[in-house]
Amino acid sequence: VTLFVALYDYEARTEDDLSFHKGEKFQILNSSEGDWWEARSLTTGETGYIPSNYAAPV
């Protein structure tokens, strides 16, 4: 399992994006889409796309 942590807060701009807060942890589901990764929040259980430059490996 690849775990990442949010470096900044992010507010979803589309219904496919995932809103999150700094410090929140994610499981990365798909990182082959370039700058946007499909991720599941370990806090909320929700799935959506996150900007890859807002996350770092745990």
Results as ranks from 00 to 15, higher is better:
residue 19 S to C: 05
residue 31 S to L: 13
residue 4 F to K: 01
residue 13 R to E: 10
residue 32 S to F: 10
residue 19 S to M: 03
residue 56 A to V: 14
residue 25 K to Q: 12
residue 24 E to H: 07
residue 41 S to H: 08
residue 17 D to H: 15
residue 23 G to R: 01
residue 52 S to Q: 07
residue 11 E to Y: 09
residue 42 L to R: 00
residue 27 Q to I: 15
residue 4 F to D: 01
residue 27 Q to R: 07
residue 26 F to R: 00
residue 43 T to S: 12
residue 54 Y to A: 15
residue 32 S to T: 13
residue 40 R to N: 05
residue 26 F to D: 00
residue 12 A to Q: 06
residue 47 T to W: 09
residue 22 K to T: 07
residue 15 E to H: 12
residue 51 P to V: 03
residue 58 V to W: 13
residue 27 Q to M: 13
residue 21 H to K: 15
residue 52 S to R: 11
residue 29 L to V: 08
residue 35 D to S: 09
residue 51 P to C: 09
residue 57 P to N: 05
residue 13 R to D: 07
residue 24 E to W: 06
residue 1 V to A: 13
residue 30 N to W: 08
residue 34 G to T: 12
residue 38 E to G: 03
residue 8 Y to L: 08
residue 52 S to T: 07
residue 49 Y to D: 01
residue 31 S to W: 14
residue 57 P to F: 06
residue 14 T to D: 11
residue 15 E to N: 12
residue 32 S to Y: 11
residue 45 G to I: 05
residue 23 G to D: 05
residue 9 D to G: 06
residue 53 N to T: 11
residue 13 R to K: 13
residue 17 D to L: 09
residue 29 L to E: 05
residue 30 N to K: 09
residue 58 V to N: 06
residue 47 T to Q: 10
residue 25 K to I: 15
residue 39 A to T: 04
residue 52 S to L: 06
residue 19 S to K: 04
residue 14 T to C: 15
residue 31 S to N: 13
residue 28 I to V: 09
residue 24 E to Q: 08
residue 15 E to S: 13
residue 7 L to E: 04
residue 53 N to Q: 11
residue 3 L to S: 07
residue 39 A to N: 01
residue 17 D to E: 15
residue 15 E to W: 08
residue 6 A to C: 04
residue 28 I to Q: 01
residue 3 L to T: 09
residue 8 Y to M: 09
residue 14 T to K: 14
residue 46 E to L: 15
residue 57 P to D: 04
residue 5 V to E: 10
residue 14 T to I: 06
residue 23 G to S: 02
residue 21 H to G: 08
residue 44 T to M: 01
residue 57 P to Q: 08
residue 4 F to M: 10
residue 19 S to L: 02
residue 15 E to M: 10
residue 45 G to A: 04
residue 5 V to H: 05
residue 36 W to M: 12
residue 39 A to L: 02
residue 25 K to S: 07
residue 10 Y to D: 00
residue 30 N to S: 11
residue 58 V to F: 11
residue 43 T to N: 09
residue 7 L to R: 03
residue 6 A to I: 03
residue 24 E to M: 05
residue 33 E to S: 14
residue 53 N to I: 09
residue 46 E to F: 10
residue 48 G to N: 00
residue 14 T to M: 10
residue 58 V to D: 10
residue 47 T to K: 10
residue 18 L to Q: 01
residue 44 T to W: 02
residue 34 G to C: 10
residue 32 S to M: 13
residue 39 A to D: 01
residue 32 S to L: 13
residue 30 N to M: 07
residue 51 P to H: 07
residue 38 E to K: 11
residue 53 N to K: 13
residue 46 E to T: 08
residue 14 T to W: 13
residue 45 G to Y: 06
residue 27 Q to N: 07
residue 31 S to T: 14
residue 26 F to Q: 00
residue 52 S to C: 10
residue 40 R to D: 02
residue 12 A to T: 04
residue 15 E to A: 13
residue 37 W to T: 03
residue 56 A to W: 09
residue 7 L to M: 08
residue 1 V to L: 13
residue 4 F to C: 08
residue 4 F to H: 06
residue 25 K to W: 14
residue 25 K to H: 13
residue 53 N to E: 10
residue 50 I to H: 00
residue 56 A to R: 08
residue 35 D to H: 09
residue 35 D to K: 09
residue 21 H to V: 14
residue 49 Y to S: 06
residue 56 A to C: 09
residue 34 G to L: 11
residue 9 D to H: 06
residue 34 G to P: 14
residue 9 D to N: 08
residue 16 D to H: 15
residue 29 L to R: 04
residue 41 S to Y: 03
residue 33 E to L: 14
residue 53 N to S: 14
residue 10 Y to K: 01
residue 17 D to R: 15
residue 32 S to I: 12
residue 14 T to L: 09
residue 15 E to Y: 09
residue 35 D to F: 12
residue 28 I to N: 00
residue 3 L to H: 10
residue 50 I to Y: 02
residue 23 G to F: 04
residue 58 V to P: 05
residue 31 S to C: 12
residue 34 G to E: 12
residue 52 S to P: 07
residue 2 T to E: 12
residue 48 G to H: 02
residue 46 E to N: 12
residue 8 Y to K: 07
residue 29 L to S: 05
residue 9 D to M: 03
residue 37 W to P: 00
residue 19 S to H: 06
residue 25 K to V: 15
residue 51 P to I: 03
residue 23 G to E: 03
residue 13 R to M: 12
residue 33 E to N: 15
residue 21 H to A: 12
residue 12 A to Y: 01
residue 36 W to A: 05
residue 18 L to K: 02
residue 17 D to P: 00
residue 47 T to F: 08
residue 47 T to E: 08
residue 53 N to A: 14
residue 43 T to G: 06
residue 5 V to K: 04
residue 46 E to Y: 10
residue 22 K to E: 07
residue 7 L to S: 03
residue 26 F to N: 00
residue 10 Y to R: 04
residue 23 G to Q: 02
residue 9 D to P: 06
residue 45 G to D: 05
residue 38 E to Y: 15
residue 39 A to F: 02
residue 49 Y to E: 01
residue 58 V to R: 01
residue 53 N to D: 10
residue 35 D to V: 09
residue 12 A to S: 11
residue 6 A to T: 04
residue 46 E to V: 11
residue 42 L to S: 04
residue 22 K to W: 04
residue 18 L to E: 00
residue 57 P to T: 05
residue 32 S to V: 11
residue 24 E to P: 00
residue 32 S to G: 12
residue 34 G to V: 11
residue 13 R to S: 11
residue 36 W to V: 07
